[in-house]
């Protein structure tokens, strides 16, 4: 091992860590706003990468059809569940938002896809397809039990994870895909070689984190999300619609997930079940931050990436063991330093 190898490993670790950071931050965000430990976050990443891959190959992505299916189900389920208080205006909103818009998107995508659209357009279409899935998942699975305990929500999240894995298999098939890099080519810097895509990942992560910071600190919507995170009841009392904040949190999660998917899609082969392990590493970072602090999550995620990369060099067979064992001392440390408050008592 010499310094060049160490630098290579460090670079590799930081880039992977950047992706874990994005996923870790969304886990913290969702947990803070809705108290859901969102296990299936990685699926959004996988779906983002697979949707982009379908568009690149000129096929209509499975997510377009999935969006219609989920949209119609959400509309039907909500109408039945709230039939007593259902007003024509809300029915109209749902008909447009959950039925008409997904069908319109499906038609648009299936006309554009065969022309193999430019990369920026493909990425935009990918986001347009995956982002609405976030709120739909929230409405179908979590909204009806929004006031349940963290444990119940967690169990529901595991169920959603399996459902999403199964849907991914149906809509994308079992084979893996790889995307074109956003920027092809390699840039030498001293002894190091930076892949164009690595630079894109670092830049996109930094930009997204900055945008999130701005959103939470300086926008009304972001402040409403923070208020809900701090105290749901209080937020409701001052007129913040907590249902809407849940949907917004999930839309953000789907957006960041899909974007991280399109970023890693050119580095590795992504198949319908690739997302889970990636988000699990983000989860390790989120745990290190006590599911509360965004900056600590980012630092911890990069730490996880670097640890993983060095573990791969020194003991590749035990790499995952090393990374996931990390969570045990972290949990012990957290339970020692944080004052214990039992939120189940509410």
């Amino acid at each position: 091992m010499n310094s060049t190898i160490a630098l290579f490993l460090l670079q590799d670790g930081v880039i992977n860590g950047a992706i874990y950071a994005l996923l870790g931050v969304t886990l913290v965000l969702i947990f803070a706003v809705t108290r859901v430990i969102f296990v299936p976050q990685g699926e959004f990443a996988a779906w983002g990468a697979l949707t982009l891959a379908s568009l690149e190959s000129g096929a209509t992505p499975g997510t377009a059809l999935l969006l219609v299916v989920l949209g119609v189900s959400a509309a039907v389920v909500e109408t039945i569940r709230e039939r007593a208080s259902m007003r024509p205006a809300r029915l109209g909103v749902m008909a447009v938002r959950d039925v008409a818009m997904p069908i319109a998107l499906l038609l648009i995508v299936s006309t554009i896809a065969p022309t193999k659209p430019a990369l920026w357009l493909s990425v935009l279409l990918t986001l347009a397809l995956v982002v609405p899935l976030g709120p739909l998942v929230y409405r179908l699975a979590f909204q009806p039990i929004a006031d349940a305990t963290v444990l119940t929500l967690f169990i529901a999240a595991i169920g959603v994870h399996f459902a999403m894995i199964g849907l991914g298999l149906i809509f994308f098939g079992a084979e893996g895909f790889r995307n074109e890099p956003f920027i092809a080519g390699v840039f030498p810097l001293g002894p190091l070689m930076f892949k164009g895509q690595s630079l894109v990942i670092l830049a996109a992560t930094a930009a997204l984190l900055a945008a999130l910071w701005f959103f939470f600190e300086h926008s009304m919507l972001g402040k409403a999300l923070r208020a809900t995170a701090i105290n749901r009841l209080g937020a409701r009392l001052v007129g913040i619609p907590t249902r809407a904040t849940g949907r917004i949190a999930f839309a953000l999660a789907a957006a960041i997930g899909a974007l991280s998917g399109t970023l890693i899609g050119s580095l590795t082969t992504i198949s319908y079940d690739s997302g889970f392990i990636i988000s699990l590493k983000g989860f390790v970072a989120a745990i290190a931050a006590g599911l509360a602090s965004y900056p600590v999550t980012v630092v911890a995620a990069i730490g996880v990436g670097v640890l993983e990369s060095f573990a791969a060099f020194f003991a590749s067979a035990y790499k995952e063991v090393i990374v996931f064992s990390l969570i045990i001392p972290l949990l012990i440390w957290r339970s020692l330093v944080t004052a214990h408050h039992d939120e189940e008592e509410e």
Binding site: D12, N16, I19, L267, T268, F314
Partner: peptide, 10 residues
């Protein structure tokens, strides 16, 4: 499920 094998390859 690894996203990178740089360490092993080096």
């Amino acid at each position: 499920t690894d996203t990178s094998v740089t360490g092993q390859v080096l």
